[in-house]
Write a protein that binds this DNA or RNA. Structure first.
Lengths: 204, 204
DNA sequence: CGCTTTGGCTAATTCAAATTAGCCAAATTA
DNA sequence: TAATTTGGCTAATTTGAATTAGCCAAAGCG
C-alpha cells in the first residue's frame, strides 16, 4: 500500500474512533510514519483526507448495492438459499453476515464514522439510514415475503416481522461497535434470536 | 431560567447536534445572547460546561434508576399494569414510553451526545450500553418473565423474546433521532411491532 | 447611601493545530 | 545519465478559537 492509501487508512481508523475534529493531522502522520507537512504532498488539506474517505465509502456502498445481502447478490438470487433451510443453517448464515459486518475492515470503520457524524450532516443521516435501516429492511422484507409465500413461514404482518428479525441484529452490532469485548455475549444472543424467530414463525 | 442554566441548555443542544469539538464557545454564547468572554463568569472553561452537562445527565440517570420503566417505578410494581392487559393498552403503553424517550428534552439530547462520543470515551460507552441496552433489557426481561409465569405469554427463550421486543424500539428511536421527519413512519412500525409481538406470544 | 458583587462588554493575549516555504535525496524517465 | 518529479524533512507562518485583562453599570446589601 502506498503512502497515499496508508494515510487514508490510518485517518479512517482515527476518525472512526475519535471523530474528525478530534484527530490532528500530526496524529495521522505519526501513524503513517511521516511528519505532518509531508501529508500535504498527498492531500490538499485535512478536509480533503476526510472527503476522500467519504468518497471511498460511497463508491463501495454503491458497488455493493443493497447492504445486508450476500456479496451483492440480489434477493431473488438468494431465494434458493433460504427457501427450505434448516434452523442451524439459518443460524450459520445469520452469524456469518453479522460477523462480516462487524469485522470487515472498511464496513466497521465507516459505520462508526457515520454514527459519530450522523447528526451534524444531512448527507450522513441519509446514508446511515439507507445503509442500516432502509436497505437491510427492504432486502429482508422481500426475503421473508418469499418465505411466507412458499409456505416456509407463517403469515403475519410482514413489516413487523422484518423489524423483529432485523432489529436485534442492528442492536447487537451497535453494542459490539461500542464494546468489542461483548462480542461473545452478542453472538450468543444473536443465535438465540434467530432460533427463536425460526421456531415462532416456522410451519404454517 | 438564569444565564448559568441557559448556557447549559444551549450547550447541550449544540453538543448533541455537532459534538463537543465542533462547538465553539462563541456559538454557545451567541445562542444565549451574550459574548463569549461573559461565559467565563459562569464556567471556568469550555470543558467545565461539558462536565456540568455530564454531571446533570448522570444525576438524572441515577435518580430514575432503570431506564425503560415508568416513572422510576420498579418492575415489581409495574407488574399489575402488564399482567392482564389488552393489546390496545399494550400499544398505548409502548408508544407512550417511546414518545417520552424520543421527545423528553433532556433524554433525547443526552442520548445524542452519548451516541456521538461513545467511541472516544470508555465511560460513555459504558453509560450508553447501560442506559440503552442492559437496563431496558433486564427490566423488560423481568416483565416478560412475569407474564410468562402468569400464563399471559407463551413460553420461549426469554432472552430472545426480550431482544425481539426491545430491539425494534431501540432501532426506531435511533432512526428518529437521526431523521425526525420519519417519526410518523416509525410510530406506525412500532405499533405494528407491538401488536404482532402480542399476537405471537399471546395465549399459552 | 456608599460598598461590593455580579455579569456584561471590548480589546488583548495565548496557544495549539493547520498549513506553507523551501531544502534535499532518491526514484523515475527521456 | 542528466533532468525532473516525488515525497520526505525542518523551520517558519498563519489562523482561529479559547481564554484573560481590565473596564463598567446595575443590582444587592450593610
Amino acid at each position: 500500500m502506498d503512502t497515499k492509501h496508508r494515510i487514508l487508512d490510518e485517518a479512517l481508523t482515527l476518525f472512526a474512533n475519535k471523530g474528525y475534529a478530534n484527530v490532528y493531522v500530526s496524529e495521522i502522520a505519526e501513524k503513517v510514519g511521516i511528519k505532518a507537512p509531508s501529508l500535504y504532498k498527498h492531500y490538499k488539506n485535512k478536509k480533503a483526507i476526510f472527503d476522500a474517505i467519504i468518497e471511498e465509502m460511497d463508491s463501495r456502498y454503491k458497488s455493493q448495492a443493497g447492504s445486508f445481502n450476500l456479496n451483492g447478490i440480489n434477493p431473488m438470487n438468494d431465494f434458493d438459499l433460504y427457501t427450505d433451510i434448516s434452523e442451524d443453517e439459518l443460524v450459520q448464515i445469520g452469524t456469518g453476515l453479522f460477523m462480516y459486518f462487524l469485522h470487515d475492515d472498511y464496513t466497521n470503520r465507516f459505520r462508526k464514522i457515520l454514527t459519530i457524524e450522523q447528526f451534524s450532516n444531512g448527507d450522513f443521516s441519509k446514508l446511515f439510514s439507507s445503509q442500516y435501516f432502509d436497505e437491510p429492511f427492504s432486502y429482508q422484507k422481500i426475503l421473508l415475503g418469499m418465505l411466507i409465500t412458499s409456505g416456509s413461514l407463517k403469515e403475519g404482518n410482514i413489516d413487523a416481522m422484518t423489524l423483529q428479525f432485523y432489529s436485534p441484529i442492528y442492536l447487537l452490532l451497535t453494542l459490539c461497535d461500542r464494546e468489542p469485548s461483548r462480542e461473545g455475549e452478542a453472538l450468543k444472543l444473536l443465535k438465540l434470536h434467530i432460533r427463536q424467530f425460526a421456531r415462532i414463525y416456522k410451519g404454517k
